[in-house]
Design a protein around this nucleic acid. Sequence first.
DNA 1: GTCTATAACAAGATAGAC
DNA 2: GTCTATCTTGTTATAGAC
Lengths: 196, 196
Amino acid sequence: MKTNKNTQRRQELVQIAARLFCDQGYETTTVRMLAEAMGIQSGSLFHHFKDKQEILFAVIDSGMQHAIAIAQRALQQAQTPQQKLFALAKAHLSTLLEDRDAHVVAIYEWRSLSVDSRARLVELRDAYEALWIEAMDEALAAQLITGDTALRRRLALGALNWTVQWYQPQGRLSPDDLAQALVAMVLNQTAVNQFY
Amino acid sequence: MKTNKNTQRRQELVQIAARLFCDQGYETTTVRMLAEAMGIQSGSLFHHFKDKQEILFAVIDSGMQHAIAIAQRALQQAQTPQQKLFALAKAHLSTLLEDRDAHVVAIYEWRSLSVDSRARLVELRDAYEALWIEAMDEALAAQLITGDTALRRRLALGALNWTVQWYQPQGRLSPDDLAQALVAMVLNQTAVNQFY
DNA sequence: GTCTATAACAAGATAGAC
DNA sequence: GTCTATCTTGTTATAGAC
């Protein structure tokens, strides 16, 4: 079983699968559709992936790895708790936008993963949320927020993830505006340009 | 085609379908599974519903009708803009909790609806959101909030809908606590017991 | 690494008896 | 309103040649 190699070809196929899964849903997308979009026959697909579910796993896994990397890089340039929360919100939004297919799939097709796959991805999700938990704790220590930081984090991540439902980056609201509004809401502040 | 009657039997079947669709997803749930849970044979199912998709529509339609009714009733006892927003948040949460199956299905299986079904349900969703828009506008007029009320509404509804992912009503956080925290966040206030 | 051909099975839906 | 029996189609996945 040499289907686990991270070849460039495989990454291309994963991108294509992400698009189809995002547009039509995992169950509705057949291996024949995937193969056609990839320019091969359906039988050839199973040279790259053990089964259909492994393609779904690869899509979500890749999206999450990417999200963690972007968030960590964004945090390196932030100093204060506000800056860190803003950096995380911005990073979250840009991953949702740049890697939208994979994240829509992660949100909607979680259930179709095998139990083992889910367990592996939960670890990644926990690693990602740990970045938020740390920033929220720092904000709490700096007395920028009070009370239940876990609740604030969940409300904030919920509001962020829900943006895939309505947010149009080409609209009047820039990703930065959106990130600022969110951080202001999380911090219970009304000022807007305090993050730089 | 007398499949459109709102018989009591049909309502029971819709409830059962909601549970299966919620637990396993629409596409993964077969008509045979549905029939078994309903205590009938798969052929008999098509006496009640034209096709599988009509069952999905009935589940989501019923959940949305219910949500609107609960929200309207909750608003009748509210006076101030704060009270109205709190009433809406509480109503939204109790619908999500009491009618959880249907709303999880509404969130996750929207894509599997026919174009016509979607259009009819969009009308219901708009009617529901109109209640929020009105309350937010009143909060704006009362200078409780400033800026982009549409953005605040979307962030709030996103945070609320995302609660299906993590909220456990039997945990330490009551639905009232959650609704209060949300309204406080929407209104950029830190005080907690100002709503009564 | 891709092809063709096909195995093996499950899906939604219908027909007609009761 | 429910049953049994079945049609028709589409699905994932495999085998073996190239």
